[in-house]
Design a protein around this nucleic acid. Structure first.
Length: 156
DNA sequence: GCCAACGTTGGC
DNA sequence: GCCAACGTTGGC
């Protein structure tokens, strides 16, 4: 099983939005970056995903989701009225794909980017790399375990 | 194939 | 709101 991190701006879609959905499941549509798409193609059922809130205050890992459907064509790419429409993607030859994820756990205490940066052992995390913009990225198992432990330990 | 221009992401 | 970093586009 592999571990991942996916970013979302909470103003468009937050972990609370995910929690409110039927079956607490959503399709991760709208990704228009080849590297991010390729990572989604690698995802297997049961893979675990950190849910990250970007462009907010504070930015933070706010919970865990899991992959419940493997990569399949993203229909928003076919819709001219959709914000993420891409005429290069045809139903006969889809360019963009998405996976479905289901909420596993919302952290009682989100781990902020600032806290992650200060944490020994996470220096190599893609999320913390300067200029990193990848919205779907792999997380190393040791990083995953450390972050989960921190989230459980954290008390205010 | 190079690279300047442009649009976007996302932390601050 | 600013702007650095990044990915993509398109002229040459």
């Amino acid at each position: 099983m592999r571990y991942w991190l996916m970013k979302s701006e909470p103003e468009s879609f937050s972990i609370d939005d995910l929690a409110r959905l039927p079956k607490q499941t959503t399709s991760w549509d709208g990704v228009r970056n080849y590297q991010a798409r390729n990572f989604m193609r690698e995802m297997e059922l049961g893979d675990q995903v950190f849910f990250y809130h970007s462009s907010t205050d504070p930015t933070a890992i706010v919970g865990i989701a899991e992959v419940v459907k493997k990569a399949y064509p993203d229909p928003t790419a076919f819709d001219p009225k959709d914000k993420h429409y891409d005429p290069k993607s045809k139903p006969s030859n889809p360019l963009w794909e998405m996976v479905d994820i289901r909420l596993v756990e919302k952290f009682a205490h989100p781990l902020t980017l600032e806290e992650l940066r200060a944490q020994p052992g996470l220096e190599k995390m893609e999320l913390l790399r300067k200029g990193s913009r990848l919205s779907v990225q792999p997380v190393r198992p040791e990083e995953w375990k450390l972050i989960v432990k921190l989230a459980q330990r954290k008390k205010k």
